[in-house]
Simulated scan of single mutants.
Amino acid sequence: MFKHAHFKAHTALFLQATGLTGGPGAAPLFSGLDLQIPTGLTAVTGDEGTGKTSLLRLLSGDLSAHSGTRPATDALWLNLALPEHDEATPEQVWSALQQQCPRWSTELQQDVTEALSLQVHLGKKLFMLSTGSRRKVGLVALLASGATLTCLDQPYVSLDQGSIQVVRGFLNDMADHPTRAWLVADYEADPDLDWSSCITLG
């Protein structure tokens, strides 16, 4: 099952994918998918195993499609849980990504780092951090990246309530952005966010 809700009135079309077919395995998880992503916030919802992460990876270009078209855009999806990041410090992660993200905001990086109480962890390698702190490092990168399409995969997992409020507040500030889009994957759409659109997988 696939459902795509209508845009709210003040949003514009940001990205259109046609006949998108692909997934992480040999057999495509998605076949002939047509999507219209508006500016602002789009929820990608569904149960475990329905393909939320795979869809974000396909739309960001992190996962190559077998067929179909996804217009080129400045997109970012990030998974810092992978072992390849274990030996890097938060600042090394951000510095490497900054080279890939021409709209990166150092000021926003510093503001979100402070808001998420990450300053005390900046000299530590990622393997030394708790799951929550490691996820915060990824969130700083995604929020500061300036990417025109930013993909957030279950952004609230392992976060304390104060940090959830920081992320929620930032996203609501971005909800009416005229030239950027945010895909937020989770089991359900956060009722406290001002969504432009919702994609339901199942």
Rank of each mutant, 00 (worst) to 15 (best):
M1I: 14
M1F: 13
H4G: 09
H6N: 13
F7T: 12
A9F: 11
L15Y: 07
L20G: 06
A26R: 15
G32Q: 12
D34A: 09
L35G: 08
T42L: 07
E48R: 13
K52W: 07
L55V: 12
R57L: 08
L58D: 06
S60H: 05
G61Y: 07
H66N: 10
T73L: 05
N79M: 03
L80D: 09
L80F: 11
E84L: 13
E87N: 13
E87A: 14
T89M: 06
L97M: 10
L108Y: 02
V112I: 15
E114W: 04
A115H: 05
L118C: 05
V120N: 11
H121L: 11
H121V: 09
F127V: 09
F127N: 08
L129G: 01
S130C: 03
S133H: 13
A141Y: 07
A147D: 06
T150I: 06
L152E: 02
D153Y: 01
P155Q: 00
V157C: 00
S158M: 08
D160G: 07
S163G: 12
G169N: 13
G169L: 07
N172D: 12
D173G: 15
P178Y: 06
R180I: 00
L183F: 05
V184H: 03
D192I: 00
S196K: 03
S197W: 08
S197Q: 11
C198I: 08
I199H: 03
G202D: 14
